[in-house]
Write a protein that binds this DNA or RNA. Structure first.
Length: 423
RNA sequence: GGUGAGGUGGCUGAGUGGUCGAAAGCAGCGCUUUGCUAAAGCGCCGUACCCCAAAAGGGUACCGAGGGUUCGAAUCCCUCCCUCACCGCCA
């Protein structure tokens, strides 16, 4: 959520920053400003009336205290009360409208973000490693999984429908090894604190991290829409400190969490849904930081580096994309996508999205920190998946296949997996 | 799921319809005094929003959240959330 004061004071600046998203959001700014002006006017009159009523009530109280009656004053009080009810409703309605509008305005892209309408304008910032040279007959993750019984998608569908995974045998063990490997790396080498949060989330928390109000159809809802299954660990983890005022000395908070993620993928019909690339439930290890505003961009770089480190240790080729403004998520000011090379797909797969939300989320969550001057300010929140597992799994087994058909397990993972190969 | 008790400012804790944004204590900040690692006295000490060009200043709201009753609500009524205790059920 943008600061209404920023919009009020620098509307042209806000519009021009918004314009680079190519989403037509600039139009909402004038609307918000109009509502804001009306709201403040109504609020001022309401406060005047409240002051009048308060004064009257005190007078009545004083008279009563002296044993006098105050019928005339009470009548005045009732009249003011009527007006207050009306103005109060108007003020509340305007306030609501303003909030609703503000919730629909996306974050301002950072000036360093490339302009562009869609993913075609994303830029490759850097890449690491090389595409593995495998012999001609490359199997994709599905063929490999079938060969070594790593997955049972038919039976998963029997339980839950298409788009669900059942890892089996060495596949399940590999999945679990990846989770443990990543969490251990981030806690021991990168200084993150491990958290294992609930996966069922209240409605108001979904607003804080911008899944609501715009993307309700993406999520699985429970209890008449009051609870949701977490679509990403970002939601429970970022909301951990909502409605709190943190001491500045506690920043940055660095948290790593494993959770399953549930997504309807409602708008994805027709997209690549083969295998385990796009599913309704997947495991993810997530990184979240809550930082001082002045450090947030440096922290974004290190967060991205932390996520990359996993791929480096696994020896997987990847590239980093800087998303252009038009491709940026709703709340993000700047995002790097990490894409791992999948030999089986002959394509890069997005496995992580590392974003700086600046104070967009913390405003929505009313999460603040006490600055050294004693003022409460909004910290910046960052989040990046420390990698989505099914895609990483796919890239890993595809990249590890050997001429004899076996799958080599990267050295760093072997102690977690309990072996050097799948055969 | 049932029953009971609760949720007040950084903390402890008063306050059951009027002058209560809220006693008192602790912690914190400032000043004064005393020649001793401290004590005493005095003052300050919440947040958000609105008015004001700004500062100064003024105002409103907030006692878990939201409604209601009333001229007036921390206080009465309703709903919800949460905490604690006991009972039941269950991994």
């Amino acid at each position: 959520m943008l600061d209404i004061r920023l919009i009020r004071e620098k509307p042209d600046f806000v519009k021009s920053r918004l314009a680079v998203r190519c989403g037509g959001d600039e139009a909402r700014i004038d609307e918000v400003l109009r509502v804001d002006a009306d709201r403040r006017q109504a609020e001022t009159s309401l406060q005047q009336l409240n002051a009048d009523r308060k004064r009257l009530a005190k007078e009545i109280g004083a008279k009563r205290g002296r044993g006098e009656t105050a019928e005339e004053l009470e009548k005045q009080g009732r009249e003011i009360g009527q007006k207050i009810v009306e103005l109060d409703q108007r003020t509340a309605a305007l306030d609501n409208e303003q909030r609703k509008l503000l919730l629909q305005i996306p974050n301002l892209p950072d000036p360093s973000v490339a302009t562009g309408r869609d993913s075609a304008a994303n830029v490759v910032v850097r890449s690491w490693g090389e595409k593995p040279t495998l012999d001609a007959k490359i199997l994709d993750h599905l063929a490999l999984s079938e060969k070594w019984n790593l997955l049972d998608l038919e039976r998963a569908a029997k339980i839950s429908g298409s788009g669900f995974i059942c890892f089996t045998g060495a596949g399940a063990r590999l999945e679990r090894a990846l989770i443990n490997f990543m969490i251990d790396l981030h806690t021991s080498a990168h200084g993150y604190r491990e958290v294992s949060p609930p996966f069922v989330i209240r409605r108001e928390c979904m607003i804080g991290t911008t899944q609501l109000p715009k993307f309700e159809e993406e999520m699985y809802g429970l209890e008449n829409g009051e609870l949701f299954l977490a679509p990403t660990a970002e939601v429970p983890v970022t909301n951990l400190y909502r409605e709190e005022i943190l001491p500045a000395a506690e920043l940055p908070k660095k948290i790593v969490a494993y959770t399953p993620c549930f997504r309807r993928e409602a708008g994805s019909a027709g997209r690549e849904t083969r295998g385990i690339i796009r599913v309704h439930q997947f495991d993810k290890v997530e990184l979240v930081k809550i930082t001082l505003p002045e450090n947030s961009y440096a922290e974004l770089e290190s967060l991205t580096a932390d996520a990359e480190r996993v791929l480096q240790l696994l020896g997987l080729h990847y590239r980093i994309l800087g998303l252009c403004a038009g491709d940026l998520g709703f709340g993000s000011a700047k995002t790097y996508d990490i894409e791992v090379w999948s030999p089986g797909q002959n394509a890069y797969l997005e496995v992580s999205s590392c974003s700086n939300y600046e104070e967009f989320q913390s405003r929505r969550m009313n999460l603040r920190f006490k600055d050294s001057d004693g003022k409460n300010r909004f910290p910046h929140t960052l989040n990046g998946s420390g990698l989505a597992l099914p895609r990483l799994f796919a890239a890993l087994i595809e990249s590890g296949q050997q001429p004899d058909g076996s799958i080599r397990v990267p050295e760093k993972l072997q102690s977690y997996f309990g072996g050097a190969e799948i055969r």
